[in-house]
Design a protein around this nucleic acid. Structure first.
Lengths: 239, 239
DNA sequence: GACACTTCGTTACAATTTGGTACCAGTGCG
DNA sequence: CGCACTGGTACCAAATTGTAACGAAGTGTC
């Protein structure tokens, strides 16, 4: 996995910079440091940056206005570091477009967790957007046409899916690999809450499998997790 | 749209639970209640949860350690309810990953405001968050994928675990190194109380070991404590 | 160390739970 | 009305889990 996530730490305290840098590098991130707004800008000019960790209190241009400037031109997630737990400051930061904040002194693990959360939130919708724009998804050797609710094999022949089947497939595609309980599936497909003896999801899965699995007895696309639910096990590619 | 925001209220006081439930349902949220950690866990297993409201003081497992456990394996926003305005407790809670806290007795409107704030920050609803879900734990040389209910070796080949096996492993992962008695394990995995001659946990451990231990005779992951129970002895890293 | 006693690991098997799907009935739509 | 779709039911198959049993291993006493 080259192209490691690139994080820039902006803080005028050497010790904090180094602490964060060391910890994140250890976790496989690519880390750059900057001690002021101008050095940050130099980095942004030349490199692709995935996330900025920004001390809110800095000499010269402070973090808040720096944040505003970044937001004005780029769309890079920002996590604030702040020494103040004051609610007003947090709110100002968040309203300026910071994605999260962390009060010093912080637990490195919490920093890591928040970095992950922010990156996930930043990337997930983008992927979804791409999916809906392109209107097709490749899954296993099928090409799913989201607009026409049908799937095409290699030969280009389309098999129409019923609305329920298609909804189900879409739920899986949006959560590749995740194990989803029947309850969740029912909620996600039709917004209904299940009673215990509800087998409609089983039925839908069975019907869907009959259409898309080579061998329904030995499914290669929708996997059953005994006592748990179902999951999509085929490779999903957003084209 | 269907899929209303799903909030779980965890409190052992019926009145507070019902107050919050009633208020939030009125506001269009989907609300579940739990009166203890184990019932919360059961909900988390089967349903998609967007936010947890957690009383910090509860009999049995208290909110703080419960929070730590949730944070270890899930990434769901948490709001603490606390009777104490003590700063230390608040800080402990926040450092453990709680997103906000509320001091009892509280104004329902304030609760609502905080819920909105927390959810705004966790911009992607739970359904979308799942999209790029990569919650994994490294344990020994295994990579445990929490979302997919499976473990992968170095070669990336996944070994499926049964739900009971997975639940057991998860209980251990959430309490690395802790020695857990059979009784505790039974309670934590299936919420059952053990009678003396219950050997089901031994069996589960045996079956799990057969899957994940190099050499089941000389276990390097799940250790037996004679007369005490079992513990996870391998290194656990949350990625 | 020999012994009795307890706890643990594992196997085999039975009981139970859960999943798959054929079939039927109700629904909505043209 | 005919048609396709969907959910419910029933039945069977498959997987999992608990129990019992037995031998192995640990613990304490003499």
């Amino acid at each position: 996995m080259q192209n490691a996530t690139h994080v820039v730490v902006v803080d005028d305290h050497t010790d904090i910079r180094d602490l964060v840098r060391q910890y994140l590098e250890q976790q496989g991130y690519k880390v750059s440091v900057a001690e002021s707004g101008s050095s940050l800008r130099r980095i942004l000019e030349r490199q692709t940056v995935d996330l900025i960790i920004l001390d809110i209190m800095m000499p010269g241009e402070d973090g808040i206005s720096l944040c505003r400037r970044i937001r004005a031109s780029e769309d890079i997630p920002i996590i604030f570091l702040t020494a103040m737990a004051e609610e007003t400051d947090r709110i100002v930061g968040l309203e300026l477009g910071a994605d999260d904040y962390l009060v010093k002194p912080f637990n490195p693990r919490e920093l890591l967790a928040r970095i992950r959360a922010v990156l996930r939130r930043a990337t997930a919708p983008a992927a979804l957007r791409a999916m809906h724009e392109r209107r097709t998804v490749r899954i296993g050797h099928w090409r799913v046409n989201l607009g026409r609710q049908e799937i095409c094999g290699e030969d280009g022949v389309g098999i129409p899916l019923s609305t329920a089947e298609f909804r189900l497939l879409k739920v899986f595609i949006e959560r590749p690999g995740l194990v989803l309980s029947r309850e969740q599936l029912l909620d996600l497909t039709v917004g209904r809450t299940a009673d215990i003896f509800d087998r409609s999801i089983d039925n839908q899965v069975s019907r869907l499998r009959k259409k898309i699995e080579e061998n329904p007895k030995n499914p290669s696309i929708i996997k059953t997790h005994w006592g748990g639910g179902y999951s999509l096990c085929a490779e999903v590619a957003f084209e």
